[in-house]
Design a protein around this nucleic acid. Structure first.
Lengths: 247, 247
DNA sequence: CGCCTTCTTGAGATGACTCAATGGTGGTGG
DNA sequence: CCACCACCATTGAGTCATCTCAAGAAGGCG
């Protein structure tokens, strides 16, 4: 499987769960120690994935799923002409690439690419499916995650289907800001967050072209709403952004 | 809760599961008899919902979820200006309105309206949540449903975000045709299916205006691809539709 | 220094929207 | 049985948001 080629193992020994930098948001959150122990034994190595490398692609049948420890990953779907529609950005703590269908002919219906260098913790799909079937709490937890993802997906649909370009982009920026804030990755003094997305990716995620994304971002900058430079983005006027985004 | 006003109880005695006309697609599919018995005891009355009545709305905290027995229901999300983005059409057998979050402040993030008169079987949210926590198989089943819904949602996002109007509409028509075919609701001799959607709803579901939807449908008719009349739709040239839809 | 990716900007094309008006159809009540 | 009304489909004219194509500028990296 080609996607595996990009994955570079980091350590040979499983990392104890307590050391997981994002334990509180990962799959085994809120599961009691017994289950966590069981999760530990299933945990595989950590892997590095370099920026721009593909984690998996539409049509793959990956044998691992991952918890993202650090970095950004973009999930997207593409059509025959090669146009991309971004689905969502996975941030540290998110659970990525799980294929619930046991059927060996089941295939991923979207692709995942590293926006930045990423550190991932791998689980075998089979092990995960086994754990889920065995532990109702874990299944329940996954249900919640899926519901949350579904809600976000619906919000994106509303944006892409019904909003103007500036609304879509403003919404995405605020959403990422808020998610990064809960991860403690924004500088609250300057309202600055890491922002590794290219304008092309921003367009993918909002259903716009890169060119038009550029025009909107320039307008935002001219209007003194945000300042984007050097892989980071500073929000100057959050209220105006919220207003535009209809958040 | 206003949405309850539209629901008209049909029978006072729970309908035995074996009589469920769509048993094979409902939540308790593939769950063994013990669970099914438990599900039976939780099953509430059946309800009628008339066409155009709302089942629940964004912001509601409904105390029931439903299995749709007959009729069509449209789920959608709307923004402050009142624009609607259709999320999906629920057909008989689909599970509708479940709110997994136990938190009493949790709210529905989309609305559901009856496209046609509908017959629904109700479950108390609390009972469902209890059953799910107790029975891993049931949780697992729900996971599969959510994954399937998520995949469909992503397909819609690709359509709405990246495809031309005729592609979006062709895709929706074929998708509905296929779903109705598995339900045995198409006349295979004439390739005709029931089609209660107005052009306005069709526009909601594809991120288009009613007016533009009309123009596309007229073109489809002029090109002898489909014929839509009298609440039903006949597909004359499926291959051409598939080609357009990039299915 | 030179290459490659990303960003920027312009000019023109076009798909989809808005506004507006008309026609059809089915249901309802007098 | 007819008149009316509500809803839906149809069509035209004009506008606008976004796209396409194209080219140049600005960085980062070996």
């Amino acid at each position: 499987m080609r996607s595996r080629d990009s994955l570079i193992p980091v350590t040979q020994t499983p990392t104890p769960c307590a050391h997981c930098p994002v334990r509180e948001r990962a799959l085994y959150q809120a599961v009691d120690d017994d289950y966590i122990h069981s999760a530990q034994t299933k945990r595989l190595n950590q892997f590095n994935l370099s920026a721009k490398r593909t984690l998996y692609e539409e049509g793959d049948h990956p044998d691992m799923a991952f918890t993202l420890f650090s970095g950004w990953i973009m999930m997207y779907r593409s059509d025959r002409e090669g146009d991309r529609q971004g689905l969502r950005i996975a941030l540290p703590g998110d659970f990525v690439g799980f294929l619930p269908d046991t059927n060996p002919s089941a295939r991923m219906n979207h692709s995942a690419v590293a926006v930045t260098d990423a550190l991932l913790c791998g689980f075998r799909q089979d092990d995960l499916r086994g754990m889920l079937k065995q532990h109702p709490q874990l299944s329940w937890q996954l249900n919640s995650f899926q519901s949350r993802d579904m809600a976000a997906c619906q919000t994106t649909m509303l944006n892409v289907g019904r909003k103007m370009a500036d609304q879509r982009i403003a919404h995405l920026l605020v959403e990422l800001y808020d998610r990064l804030e809960t991860l403690g990755q924004v500088d609250k003094r300057t309202n600055t967050m890491p922002f590794p997305l290219t304008q092309s990716m921003l367009g993918d995620l909002t259903g716009l072209t890169q060119v038009h994304t550029n025009r909107v971002m320039r307008r935002f900058r001219d209007d003194n709403l945000v300042l984007c430079s050097n892989q980071s983005l500073q929000i100057h006027n959050r209220n105006a952004l919220l207003e535009i985004a209809d958040y």
